[in-house]
Nucleic acid binder design. Structure first.
Length: 619
RNA sequence: CAGGGUGUAGCUCAGCUUGGUAGAGCGCUUGGUUUGGGUCCAAGAGGCCGCAGGUUCAAAUCCUGUCACCCUGACCA
């Protein structure tokens, strides 16, 4: 057993694609032959009314999944086979990257989450349940706490590191709104890995593992046949420093990423940097006299703009944040153009503070902010404010702004006239990037290039966690200098069930799913035209046996159904190759060969050449 | 959490306004027919009309409550 695994890993080292081809062409692997009549593939002509996205509709109609409750699904045999194939690829690549598989419980005591405060930060998304003794438990959304506490009792020395442990397991999240079939579930299949290090740099350090995992993820998604993009990302509530998301590219994706067509730089909206933009001098001439306008009961920029007859891109949006970090100003006030969105991460870094939150309304009012009607003038009227002005909001010309007075806005706001000398004090006013990037913004990595938007589905996410969890939970090791140091961690996730759905989103047509070779539940569908014809059955047996011996997985449609039904179902199920056994071709010693992707009529292939022909399209 | 919508046969849905014995298509069973892209004909089986109260001689239909599910938003490794 060990030897076999060893061989396989070795086989991957020289060239992953070669090894992949060998595995897929069946080298050293026995294939499967499954009769349709003896498995469970409940195809339907119509999808349930609540299925809206293509992957949900197709996976339901083709008999892969069934809904059990909101965001909870059965994985029927076909889906199970796809998941197993994805898991197989994940295992091979992770083992090659030095990770080791284990299994942790989905159920865990709630107290585990107290130390890291994730009971609060994860909030309602954490599934809680009470046991018979009245103790609180959680259904794990991820396993940082469990694995950190595990290592705490077992790892004491830097010599025991690095370590990279992973599992493939069911995860639970009490989503505010499960939706889109398998794409956003309350219970789903996830691969999560955690790495542990005594250093960041160098051999055995976090960066080395992170890079190895990045490469492994790239291999995994490539081998799965997915069109994907690795993008820079915010690390979110899980915390940490660096992070990348792996997105399957498809128009129906929920997430937007921005991409520079010249440099290849890609990042999600929260993270995306913006290239150099023109800034104002703050000395431009006023566009007119400052005029107050009565604007009561208007909920947003759009509505205010309509009443004032000003387009949002000529309005200043002024947002008040409270500094939650150590030291620094009490308030951080960010100003962006009305049609832009403030980016908290960028506000934080430009202000040079470690944590901010949207100012609590009551506190802000008490401090003197006319919440909802704030203007940049607060720099002169409220104590402890640092003002951050987005480059695009720093120019001259006409501006509308809040009036620092409830129910009022002003027209012809002019930076110099309204704000004055404070503009020249770099400790009070900073101009830079504090907003989300949008399509058409200058690329941060290539002069003259403009950012483009792409839609995608997040299927993988890797993080450099640092010491967030080890520090909070006291996981330390002794280093070579006899000092106790918190362990440095990374964590790495792949949504396995989501990957299956994302693949369908990416690869389907009107008739059904089109599986990539590597994760198709079976490679070949053999359709027997007459289920009770001895000659056809004999030919089917021969073809199936040959394919199986070549290491291929075969689904043979032996049902007593009309040809039309079988063909429709074959398209729906979406196996890469369909071989049809019928009288006409058989009379010439042939079968019909057709790829799901290629469509068309199909070629006649001699019985003896079937395996070769199928192999020729394996990819 | 806010706003909207839907619960009737395995699936898609009609019936509800105006209360009076539960409907269609697909699927399923049986028989026949047909046999290369969801055949055709006939006969069947199948429903606590989400659940609980109420109004009424009588409730799928009206009223109240409740639960579930879906959509938009908020939220979201």
């Amino acid at each position: 057993m060990w030897q076999r695994i060893g061989e396989r890993v070795l086989a991957f080292l020289p060239s992953l694609t070669m090894a992949n081809a060998a595995q897929q062409s069946g080298f050293g692997r026995r294939g499967t032959v499954q009769k349709w009549s003896r498995t469970f593939i409940p195809t339907t002509r119509e999808a349930p009314a609540d299925a809206e996205v293509p992957s949900h509709i197709m996976l339901h109609r083709a008999g892969y999944i069934r809904a059990v409750g909101a965001g909870i699904y059965d994985y029927l045999p076909l889906a199970h086979r796809v998941l197993e194939k994805v898991k197989g690829i994940i295992r091979e690549e992770l083992e090659a990257a030095g990770a080791v598989e284990m299994l942790m419980p989905a159920l865990e005591p709630f107290e585990l989450f107290n130390e890291t405060k994730r009971d609060e930060t994860y909030g309602d998304n954490l599934f809680r349940l009470k046991d018979r003794k009245g103790r609180m438990n959680a259904l794990a959304p991820t396993h940082e706490e469990v694995i950190t506490s595990l290592l705490k009792g077992a790892v004491n020395s830097y010599a025991q590191l690095p370590l990279n442990l992973y599992q493939i397991q069911t995860k639970f999240r009490d989503e505010a709104r499960p939706r889109a079939g398998l794409l956003r579930c309350r219970e789903f299949l996830m691969k999560d890995a955690y790495s542990f290090h005594s250093t960041v740099e160098g051999k055995g350090g976090l960066n080395e593992a992170y890079d190895a995992m990045f490469a492994a993820y790239s291999n995994i998604f490539k081998r799965c046949g997915l069109d994907y993009l690795a993008v820079e990302a915010e690390s979110g509530p899980i915390g940490g420093s660096a992070s990348h998301e792996f997105m399957v590219r498809c128009a129906s994706g929920e997430d937007t990423v921005l991409r520079c067509p010249v440099s290849g730089y890609a990042a999600n909206v929260e993270k995306c940097e913006i290239g150099e933009r023109a800034k104002g001098t703050f000395n431009e001439a006023p566009s007119g006299e400052l005029t107050e306008v009565h604007t009561p009961n208007l909920p947003g920029i759009e509505e205010v703009g309509k009443v004032m007859k000003v387009k949002p891109d000529r309005m200043l949006k002024t947002i008040v944040f409270a500094n939650k970090g150590e030291g620094g100003p009490k308030w951080v006030v960010a100003v962006v153009r009305g049609d832009h969105e403030v980016n908290e991460g960028k506000v934080k870094s430009l202000a040079g503070v470690s944590a901010i939150e949207l100012a609590p309304v009551e506190e802000a009012k008490k401090a003197g902010f006319a919440v909802g009607y704030v203007s940049p003038r607060v720099i002169n009227t409220v104590q402890g404010v640092v003002l951050l002005v987005d480059s695009d909001a720093s120019g001259g010309g006409f501006w509308a702004s809040g009036a620092d007075k409830i129910d009022h806005h002003v027209k012809h706001f002019n930076w110099r006239r309204e704000v004055g000398a404070a503009l020249d004090d770099a400790s009070k006013v900073k101009v830079g990037d504090v907003r989300n990037a949008v399509v058409g913004d200058p690329s941060p990595r290539a002069a003259g290039a403009k950012l483009e938007a792409e839609k995608g589905i997040e299927v993988g996410h890797i993080f450099k966690l640092g010491t967030k969890y080890s520090a909070a939970m006291g996981l330390q090791v002794l280093n070579s200098d006899q000092q106790r140091i918190p362990v440095i961690m990374g964590c790495y996730g792949i949504g396995v069930s989501r990957t299956m759905a994302a693949c369908v989103e990416m690869s389907h047509d009107q008739d059904g799913i089109i599986w990539p070779w590597a994760i198709a539940p079976y490679h070949v569908q053999v359709t027997v035209m007459k289920h009770d014809d001895a000659a056809q059955l004999a030919a089917a047996d021969q073809v199936c046996a040959a394919l199986r011996d070549a290491g291929l997985d075969v689904l043979v449609d032996d049902r007593d159904e009309r040809p039309g039904v079988k063909f429709k179902d074959a398209d729906l199920v979406g196996l890469p190759v369909r071989i049809t056994i019928g009288d006409k071709a058989l009379a010439e010693g042939c079968v019909e060969f057709k790829t799901r992707k290629g469509g068309g009529k199909g070629d006649l292939v001699k019985l003896a050449d079937v395996v070769t022909k199928v192999m020729s399209v394996a990819q």
